[in-house]
Simulated scan of single mutants.
Amino acid sequence: MRRVPDAPVVPLGRTEVVLCPECSELHAYALARIGRCPHMGTKTFCSACPTHCYKPAMRERIREVMRWSGPRMLFFRPIPAIRHALVTLRAKRNNP
């Protein structure tokens, strides 16, 4: 794999992944929004948050990423994946 200058390297399990420009833009945006989130100390996941910090276009891109990566999380991080599913279902049930 060719290394792109200034491309972020993200840990993935025991390996590291170099992000493409689109993914690195989404990664930087997500980190910036998380850094400014007023509910970060009390919430569990952004999908269950009462305030949506992301722009609609970025929320859709996050959904696309999660549609792909969510099922794969079961194989690499099963406990957090199940916890995420339970919290999301509970939030949807409480806020119709």
Rank of each mutant, 00 (worst) to 15 (best):
P50C: 02
E16Q: 14
G35W: 06
E22K: 11
C20D: 15
L26S: 02
S24P: 02
T44F: 01
A28H: 10
T42E: 14
A57Q: 14
R61K: 13
S24Y: 02
R63M: 09
T51N: 02
R63D: 12
V18Y: 00
A57N: 12
A57Y: 08
T44C: 00
F45A: 09
R59C: 03
K55S: 13
E60Y: 05
I34A: 13
E60A: 12
G13H: 10
S47C: 00
K55Q: 13
G41C: 01
R61G: 00
H27P: 01
M58D: 05
L26W: 01
A30T: 15
L26Q: 06
C23V: 06
G13M: 10
R59L: 09
C46A: 10
H27R: 06
F45M: 11
F45N: 13
C20N: 15
E60Q: 15
H39Q: 10
T51Q: 05
A32T: 08
F45Q: 06
I34D: 03
M40A: 14
I62F: 09
M58G: 00
C53S: 03
L19Q: 10
V17F: 12
H39R: 15
A48I: 00
T15K: 10
A57T: 11
R59N: 06
A28G: 07
T42V: 13
A30G: 14
T15P: 01
C53T: 03
C23R: 05
